[in-house]
Nucleic acid binder design. Structure first.
Lengths: 323, 323
DNA sequence: TTGAAAGCGCTAACAT
DNA sequence: ATGTTAGCGCTTTCAA
């Protein structure tokens, strides 16, 4: 184990100078800086991160807490967080809560002491719990808004409107909404926008686990509403719905139109390709890290970023059947 | 910031006793232990991880380096690593290399000083580079084997054999192989098994990025070989191949059979559902953490775990067309 | 610009 | 079982 003292000794300078040569090169004479750099290379010196962290109070770690890494939407956000963090010189501690709010709370507590800031992705906790978390350290929310806290969200309202206008233009007069987790903020957002819809009848099919199997289960409920179109909380659900519908002998979009949310890549793997509201997941992850840096700097106490979303029309939506 | 000294003072004990009360409760009298626990609760004490790490040399962090978080196979492995690590009381630093071997090398170097061990998932580096990494700290490989290093892999050979037997039984006499990244160890393994095939003619369609688009591009090449079946390096590729084939007016499995590798969930979202070799991805992640613990303990220097795989027959494979 | 010195908060001998 | 003590390796005042 070669330490900074070894480097300093080899370079014939003090430990302090060696430290400075590495962290603030301009505050050291070129000659000594060079000697230090050479010594570092010679000895293959690797700074001890724990010691740096302890002495400086900075560990260059961000934490990311999300409900499910295997969910492509969250994976995409995680990827964005990665990129952003790396760009800013941070490493990312990832915690997967398996959609469990209790585990979420616990993991936040575990993580918080070892990171400089936390990104909570689609947290399932209550607002109050989230506020508690934010009291213990810098926090940025993704896909959720809580008063006074920094967050990156998506304009779900606009997404719902775009989807509804699209369906209305195709002649649909009724749409069933297959909801996501009851505790989901973005699901609530979507319901809000749905409630505003005046020119189309909306039937709520209730909450579902935001997974393919949930969609399979929801399909029959949605169909029973007599709606000619089905809007889903996310693509996984929409994929499940489509599959079950086809299994029941219905044709998409001839008999019923299906629209999802997220635009995960699997949306284009299926036949017919899924019409969906595209959400800039990866970008959200990147923005979240930038925001987190700002929150730490006190520059963006409670900035709420709302990213635009876009309806991507593919083949799963078509004219309403002539009744 | 409340420190252990504060807790000790509040509990009327020394810092050492407070420390012990928390890390080795049995080495402290029940009375004092209780007082310490109360003080911790009262003051809301959170240990400083950096200080613990510096003093003890253990930071309770594992590192996970993988090519692409957005790839469902790697996400599944990451999820397993998460679970395993958490079970063992470790947090996980994740680094996404974006399939870039250079980035991979750099990230390993960055990460290594801040973790107690590294899990390298499908590394794209050369064997020698990997050995270098292993010289700087405990390392476990996933989906790759290097002499003398601990690893968790899948029995690709058996997977290929199972797929080939299946196709052979269906009357296929020729199969095209759509390969993965040229630098991929598991791709090489599959090619090895393919070379052993005696009762079926194998055409190699060359390496491809292991993504849906790669499959779309590969489909025409595969078809041009005149094979009646196509085996793909992974499901993403198989999905892309299937899609392109359908677009060209071919029917699966009537005209051509398609078999993938991995059994990602999207394999069941599509029509026809994909016949594929199921790989215990999440389990591999868990096993990797266990192995890493053992490697650290010196208990499993170079254990090489090879997990069994299973052909899952669905609807994308069928009898060879009558020529 | 440089070095000496004082910790950061904790753990781990060691002595009791 | 408990307290005392001495660091872990680094950063960062403070003086020079």
């Amino acid at each position: 184990m070669t330490t900074l003292r070894d480097v300093a000794r080899a370079a014939g300078v003090s430990a302090a100078t060696a430290s400075r040569a590495l962290s603030a090169p301009d505050s050291v004479s070129p000659a000594k800086r060079q000697r230090v750099e050479d010594a570092v290379a010679d000895l293959g010196y690797q700074p001890n991160r724990s010691a740096q962290a302890l002495a400086s109070g900075r560990h260059q770690h961000f934490g990311l807490v999300l409900p499910d890494l295997a969910n492509p939407s969250f994976a995409a956000i995680a990827k964005g967080v990665q990129e952003g963090a790396r760009r800013d010189g941070y490493a990312v501690l990832v915690a997967d809560t398996d959609e469990d709010p209790r585990a979420e709370r616990a993991m936040v507590r575990d993580l918080q002491p070892s990171v400089e800031g936390l990104i909570l992705c689609s947290p399932r906790m209550t607002d109050d719990e989230i506020r508690e978390c934010a009291d213990s350290g810098p926090v940025v929310l993704v896909n959720r808004e809580v008063d006074e806290l920094a967050s990156v969200t998506f304009d779900s309202g606009s997404g719902v409107s775009q989807a509804l206008r699209h369906l209305r233009a195709l002649g649909h007069k009724s749409v069933a909404y297959v909801g996501g987790p009851a505790a989901s903020w973005s699901d609530a957002q979507r319901r809000l926008a749905l409630a505003d819809a005046s020119d189309i009848e909306v039937s709520d099919v209730g909450p579902h686990r935001p997974l393919y199997q949930g969609g399979v289960a929801a399909a029959d409920l949605a169909l029973a509403t007599g709606s000619t179109a089905i809007l889903c909380y996310n693509d996984l659900l929409a994929l499940g719905v489509s599959s079950r519908l086809r299994a029941r002998g219905l044709s998409i979009p001839t008999d019923v139109s299906v629209v999802g949310f997220d635009d995960i890549s699997a949306a284009t793997y299926v036949e017919p390709q899924l019409t969906t509201v595209a959400i800039p997941l990866t970008r959200a992850g990147q923005e979240a890290t930038s925001l987190l840096s700002q929150v730490r700097a006190g520059t963006a106490e409670h900035q709420q970023l709302r990213l635009p979303v876009d309806l991507v029309v593919r083949d799963s939506s078509g004219p309403a059947p002539i009744s």
